[in-house]
Write a protein that binds this DNA or RNA. Structure first.
Length: 128
RNA sequence: GGAGUGGACCGGAUGGUCGCCGGCCGGACGUCCACCGGAGGCUGAUGCGUUGGCCUCGGACGCCGGCGGGAGGAAAGUCCGGGCUCCGCAGGGCAGGGCGAUGGGUAACUCCCACCGGCCGUGAGGCCAGGGAAAGUGCAACAGAAAGCAAACCGCCUCGCCGGCUUGUCCGGCAGGUAAGGGUGAAACGGUGAGGUAAGAGCUCACCAGCAGGCCGGGUGACCGGUCUGGCUCGGCAAACCCCGCCCGGAGCAAGAUCAAGCAGGGGGAAAAGAGCAGCCCUCCUCCUAAGAGGGGAAGGUGUCCUCGCGCGGCUCGGCCCGGGCCGCCAGUGACCCCCGGGUAGAUCGCUGAAGGGCUCGAGCAAUCGAGUUCUUAGAUAAAUGACCAUCCCUCGCUCGACCCCCUCGGUCGAGCGAGGACAGAACCCGGCUUAUAGGUCCACUCCAGUC
RNA sequence: GCGUUCAUGGCGUAACGGUAGCGUACUUGCUUGCCAUGCAGGAGGUGCGGGUUCAACUCCCGCUGAACGCU
């Protein structure tokens, strides 16, 4: 685990906040997923990761959706230093109630790293 | 003690670490935008129109620190009613939708309170879209003779006619009479008794039930109680069409207002040129998308009336019509430049102090209203109000120990371990209704059993 | 935020307020050496809770679920 010495804030600059930013991530068409969630990824120019949550009504009731979003925000906040840098992420949970926080944390980290790897290989493939 | 009825209330607690949203105060680093006039405070003169002096201060966003705040009783469903905003509105009418005992409450209601009537419950209490069926139209399967200005299948009867022979208080047929009896059905045109008759029948009479009308008493009223008269019976369904009475303009904070990058496009001017583009809503197709662009093809079609008004055509608004507004009826436009307006992304406002809550007093059976006093209690916008840990509190399961007990079962207490703690998340704001809800607290009342 | 439509056997679908059908699937028996086909029979249903009515899939009210539309 990363030590908690660094202040792990979660200001607005670490979130995707407009439809333009979401569209940019979707149109990059790089995804990775596991049994709990799907992550879309795209490069950005701000030097740190940013996250956006897309939780549709199919996931569940408002209480379930809020629970998902809170757990995902907390997982991103505590693990922002371990995630790939300079990448925008859009996280889409699968329908159903969220699992325990440890599982959400592990799923987010693993899936985001896999998406970032595809991003790099795809960029190489496009350039070459 | 058990069973139950009605109502009110709570909706895990405490601590630690790390965060999020918005408010106020302070600090200063970065970015952007403004810049010599303006803003705020104190104070002086004045003829109240003005004017002088001093002090302080650039703004927004991001950053850091501090202080205090941050989901519900249903925030839900969106079933009603309003406020607010924009649009519309010559007057009326139809259509469409909703509601329906009475009196009150309210901004309003399909809500609430009280009361009346009906049904259910031993009871406390609960439920009811509860106007009109002698305005009209319609419906009632199956069964049954018959299902609605009644009707004769069986039965009963013979004042009439015919036939039979066993000559009778007989049998059969025709023609009639009869709604008392049978059976069917959810429902069959009052019930009991007496008279009456060939047999019967409200045919007549008495009482009862019910209907209509009058009168008396009580109540604001729905209605209740009593009494008299009438004809003797006049059924059900309007959550079937319908009739009567009352109410309803449409959309919704993504309403609406302000500012507005870049690209494209609109209007005007100037300049240049004489080729090209467009012509008209809508529908479909292809590509594309933030606001769009291009091409092709053929079809879609309009509830109503009166008064006033009205040249024709088009667009737009209103649920429709009549109608309101605008435009055209003289065929426009242009690369670049200047000016103007609309408007997309985005930003700001709307945005939370309100038909608001608590307490006291008064009016009222109550819903509710009035007066006084006090409190301020979320404002996000890819959307905050949280995550993790510990302890405590409940519930359940397992194990161990003690007690009740002769033992088992069972019960009580204590300890340990494990699991669980509901329904559910503000999105402009209120008043209701409906639905979901682990566990718990309090109040009033009813029935049953027991004790004193 | 504002609306619309729907819910019938396992599946797909009918039914003026009056006996809930049809196809397919399932199952039992016959036919065949066996299977398929064919023949005869059977079971299985109106999303839930109330109300109106003599009687409700149908009418009314309230829920639940699903599929859509506009902004």
């Amino acid at each position: 685990m990363v030590e908690a010495s660094e202040g792990r804030r979660f200001p607005r600059s670490h979130r995707l906040r407009t439809g333009t930013e979401f569209r940019a991530v979707y149109s990059r068409k790089v995804r990775a997923s596991n049994g709990h969630l799907t992550v879309c990824a795209c490069e950005n120019q701000v030097g740190h990761p940013r996250v956006g949550l897309s939780v549709s009504r199919k996931v569940g009731t408002a209480v379930v959706r809020n629970r998902w979003k809170r757990l995902l925000r907390e997982a991103f906040r505590l693990n922002a230093g371990r995630l790939p840098q300079g990448v925008d992420l859009v996280v889409i949970p699968r329908p159903g109630p969220p699992p325990f926080f440890r599982d959400v944390e592990a799923s987010l980290c693993n899936t985001a790293r896999r998406a970032a790897r595809r991003l790099n290989s795809g960029a190489v493939g496009n350039s070459g």
